[in-house]
Design a protein around this nucleic acid. Structure first.
Lengths: 345, 345
DNA sequence: GTGAAAGCGCTAACAG
DNA sequence: CTGTTAGCGCTTTCAC
């Protein structure tokens, strides 16, 4: 095994506790011994043992990150690597490790989180999703374990630190963009209504539609699992309505790509026949054809802020619950065009 | 903090070591005490402390997973979540945790791995990529730390346990598919030649081309960073050649999607004007338009096998180096069609 | 400013 | 089969 603190101590001619103090950058230590010890550490290639440290001061310097269940294909959404990038950045900077947890089924996920918490493997946890009635959330709440969620918690919003976008407002804004382009029949396509993000974005859509005095129709709202076979049917039904939509608000870029391809199969072009706007601005949305008009939610920043909040919270149990709203911007690209143009073609 | 082994011992009226034995499922322990202890554990909500365990028996029950640097957009490739799924599956099953490491720059990545190793945070490491002259690989080799790579190591192939596909053969097969379809001018588009996977797939392409007596031309080989702006130019040059290709072998599905869109910009359709085949069979390749003819490399299985190998190796330092080749299959879809058809249209 | 000693929670001989 | 006794490597009072 590696060099231990004792060996360093002996080599430097001091006590182990002194070496420990040097590691911790203790104030009351003479520059001379400090230098001496540091030299010995370097020469011997000393590195503190995380386990021993953790055991001695009941902390782990690591953060748990919980991805959603991989049962659906949602995990393949580039959202996750991107948010991980943000988390990693601060973790690396502040010398934290990242423990990843996911699972095929919901039950497996809970098990994973329980293990992290019970075994004392992490100091805190970041939830990369938010859905109604989440057993993981309940568990964390019950154990009073430090955690933050990316997205808006489905309950106890004021007691749970979370980092989110204003999805209602962005939903409203992006829908308004379609309205400004002259569209009057605008449908909404989103994923599971168990996800808070879907709910919020649809709510924004609703607000814009109603404020503009346009019809907020049941038939205009489609909820389908990401790109599943059933999705194709749902979308086709939309276009068999007496008044098919000319504009689509879609809750996720990846879904948009799927929908665009479905539409093409039905012989409809985007944006010539139907305009599409969506959310996230993942990298793909820029290089797909047509490039997507989409809400940039600044995924990296979501991860970055969440990690910072969590570390604050971990270091100070009394840190109050915070809500951080990361601003969004709208990327205008080619998937949406004016209704006029649509008609003239 | 949580319940300790001592408290359980006292409650069950046995010694701590007995409790420890029960936890470890030690053979020589009477069913009676075993039951008694288990009952106490359950009642008190006991969970062993991972740190203390690790410290006492110098092991961590966790695996480090190293993703490539996030400097380029490669991280957004659905390959990674998918391979993580495979790793997670066995990790969960065998009660291992997953420590994730990545970094913006190469240097940061090395730092991350060093920390994992030096601080004794992981028992072994999985490298999710393989490139030439990788400092991380060198470090691991030098420290003689247990690790496996997914892909083919750039050096010391026989000494390093790795899980890979036969990328040369798959490259050859899929190129042959294009040849069988009657294509004679076939180009190759791949990412960085620092990546072994690119090299192998191109090599397969070369073999097929040469075996068929077709021209293996310098101008037919394009290496471009994934979907970068430069990529567009490189691709356009390809089609300004005196004999532009009618078939494209592309080293990665995501790249294919980018290329298809570029081509469309130039007014060329896939597969009508040019046929495309590629690799990985990520979920997107099935729902994109056209669906991609691609090599299914069984990503999940790669992760699954890698994790198993690593755990074997961790448990038994003497485990010999292995090479596991995960078989590939070819998914025939619509992005490639016969040269005849191409001409007739 | 530094050392001695106790202990974090668990495991692993060694006895018996 | 089970209890006793040492630690694993580090931190942290408490003295000096």
């Amino acid at each position: 095994m590696g060099v231990t603190i004792k060996e360093v101590a002996k080599a430097a001619g001091v006590a182990p506790s002194t070496v420990s103090r040097v590691i911790a950058d203790h104030p009351r230590i003479s520059p001379a011994t400090k230098k001496k010890v540091k030299k010995a550490m370097k020469e011997m290639g000393y590195h503190p043992n995380a386990n021993a440290r953790g055991l001695a001061n009941r902390s782990t310097q690591s953060l748990g990150v919980v991805m959603p269940s991989s049962a659906n294909k949602a995990l393949q959404n580039p959202f996750f690597p991107e948010v991980l990038r943000g988390i990693s950045a601060v973790a690396h900077q502040l010398d934290y490790s990242i423990l990843l947890s996911t699972g095929e089924k919901d039950e497996e996920m809970l098990e994973g989180v329980e293990r992290m918490v019970y075994a004392n493997r992490v100091d805190g946890i970041i939830l990369l999703y938010s859905q109604v009635n989440d057993p993981v959330l309940h568990f964390l709440l019950e154990k009073d374990f430090p955690f933050v969620v990316i997205g808006k918690p489905s309950e106890r919003v004021d007691e749970i630190t979370h980092v989110d976008n204003d999805n209602i407002r962005s939903g409203k804004n992006i829908t308004n963009h379609l309205i400004d382009l002259g569209h009057e029949n605008i449908a909404f396509i989103g994923g599971s209504t168990d996800l808070i993000v879907t709910i919020d974005r649809m709510r924004g859509y609703q607000l814009a539609i109603e404020e503009a005095g346009l019809p907020y129709l049941e038939e205009y709202r489609v909820h389908t699992e990401f790109l599943k076979s059933g999705g194709s049917q749902a979308v086709s039904e939309l276009f068999n309505l007496p008044k098919p939509p000319t504009g689509l608000v879609i809750a996720d870029d990846l879904m948009s790509i799927g929908v665009i391809n479905m539409l093409e199969e039905f012989g409809m072009l985007v944006p010539e026949d139907v305009s599409i706007v969506s959310f996230n601005n993942v990298y793909l949305s820029e290089v797909t054809r047509p490039p997507l008009t989409t809400v940039d939610i600044h995924i990296y920043e979501l991860g970055y802020q969440a990690a910072k909040c969590l570390i604050d919270k971990v270091k100070n149990k009394l840190e109050p619950a915070k809500r951080i709203i990361v601003p969004f911007t709208i990327e205008l690209r080619q998937s949406a065009q004016s209704r006029e143009k649509t008609l003239n073609e």
